[in-house]
Structure formats: C-alpha cells, structure tokens
Design a protein around this nucleic acid. Sequence first.
DNA 1: GTTATGACTTTGT
DNA 2: GACAAAGCCATAA
Length: 146
Amino acid sequence: MARSEEAENFFHAVYSAVQEIPPGKVTSYGHIAKLIGTPERPRQVGICLKHLPVDTTERFHHDNVPWQRVINAKGAVSPRSQPAGARNQAAALEAEGVTVTTGALGELMVDFGEFGWFPRVLPSEEGQGLGDSDEDGEEGSGEDES
DNA sequence: GTTATGACTTTGT
DNA sequence: GACAAAGCCATAA
C-alpha cells in the first residue's frame, strides 16, 4: 500500500536533509539516514541520491540538492563504480571550499578539520525539517573521534 | 515474476 | 587496529 508513498517520503526526506547541508560542509549517508529516521538503512540514502531527478521541474533536482556534499562514513567520496563521477564530486566539493585529498589509490578523501563536519544531532524534526535547529555543536576542529 | 547489483553502514572475529 | 560478512530497498536485466 502506502509503500510507494512511504518510499517517496523517504526520498523526499533524503533530499530535504541534503538540502539542509550548509555550504562548505559535508555529511555522510548514515547521518542522513538517521536524520530521516532510518539509521539502519544508509544504502537507501545513496540510492535516493542516485535516483535524484535531474529534471529542474521536479521539487528536488541535481541542481537543487547538493548531493555532492554527501560522502561515505570513511570520510571519502564514493567511487560508485565510476572514478570520473567521484572525481567530479570531489571537484564540486573543492569548488565549495572543501578540501579534498586524492589518495594514491584514487580515493578522494575529504579533509575535515578544514571546514568541519555537519552536526550529527537529530533536530527531532520530521517532514518539514529544514528547521534551523542549529544545534551549533562543536564545530571546533577536532571534534571527531578517532 | 525472479535474480543480481548498488552512490553504504554496522557488527563480529 | 584491520579485515570480513550480513542487511536493507529500489532499479535494471
């Protein structure tokens, strides 16, 4: 039944979460998955971005959703099976002001300490999201754990 | 209609 | 600390 609508809602939530990402910052799939209420389904988040409509007539499209700011938990962009696409994503991130390091293996590792990581807290919002629940957080460099 | 793959993460050894 | 395996949903063949 509403599976289709649920799926659409899932997509919508992912796009909204990605749109909420401020410029100069990046987030991971698991993060968005958690934001939308599915911390156990990060894969679907990637699928959502993969199916991100390029049609500017849609509510969300490639030009409106900074999907490039979404990276994997390893702190590097996903090669997805096409280094060109990943590299393009890295180039876009650099254009945003994000420092991306190219590994010898062709891994595009994102350098955090330079811009900071997107807050990993749940604004407790759903649906509308976009709230400004700016948790502020710590931003300071070195927040990450390691 | 079924099988296989994918823009990943988490847990276990 | 590092490597390996399992799980999820949707698209494509």
